[in-house]
């Protein structure tokens, strides 16, 4: 513990994104609460758009979390709850959108760009001439080197 600041920074970086779920929202059964959190993390907040509903502080999202928890407590499966939200809010609500024509670009662009970039790098480096061996020392350079020893 030489540098308390560094330790604090590392610990902070491990904290990740904080959940916005307040204690009074949580289900009493920890296993059910964990399931609800897992479902909530797959659902995008329609108000703030860049967070999951577990992370969002928006008032509306609080009610979406409550609906998820009510359905978990009612014994609905993960799939049923995600389908419930999908039927009301469309693909937008799913942080992992389904693979279909309108999302092809979304799913395929990263691997396609990686392949194109990889091929480009491969051909550019291959075309570059191999490293040239340095010319051997001339007799005068050799003599100067010997003099230094």
């Amino acid at each position: 513990m030489k540098n308390p600041l560094a330790v604090a920074m590392i610990l902070l970086s491990l904290a990740g994104t904080a959940a916005a779920v307040e204690p009074d929202e949580m289900l009493k059964d920890p296993a059910q609460e964990a399931r609800a959190e897992n479902i909530g993390r797959q659902l995008r907040c329609p108000v703030c758009k860049t967070e999951s509903i577990e992370e969002s502080d928006a008032d509306f999202t609080k009610d979406l979390r409550r609906v998820v928890r009510e359905q978990v407590a009612d014994g609905k499966s993960d799939r049923e709850i995600l389908d419930f939200m999908h039927a009301r809010y469309g693909d937008f609500i799913l942080l992992r959108p389904p693979f279909k024509p309108s999302t092809w670009a979304l799913w395929l662009a990263p691997p396609a760009l990686l392949i194109i970039g990889g091929l480009f790098a491969f051909f550019v480096t291959r075309r570059r001439p191999a490293m040239v061996e340095p010319a051997p020392l001339t007799p005068s350079e050799q003599a100067a080197l010997e003099a230094l020893k």
Binding site: F60, D63, R66
Partner: peptide
């Protein structure tokens, strides 16, 4: 009062 019906309509505000 608890937004149940708003959510059924797919409302988000």
């Amino acid at each position: 009062s608890d937004r149940h019906v708003s959510i059924d309509w797919g409302a988000y505000g």
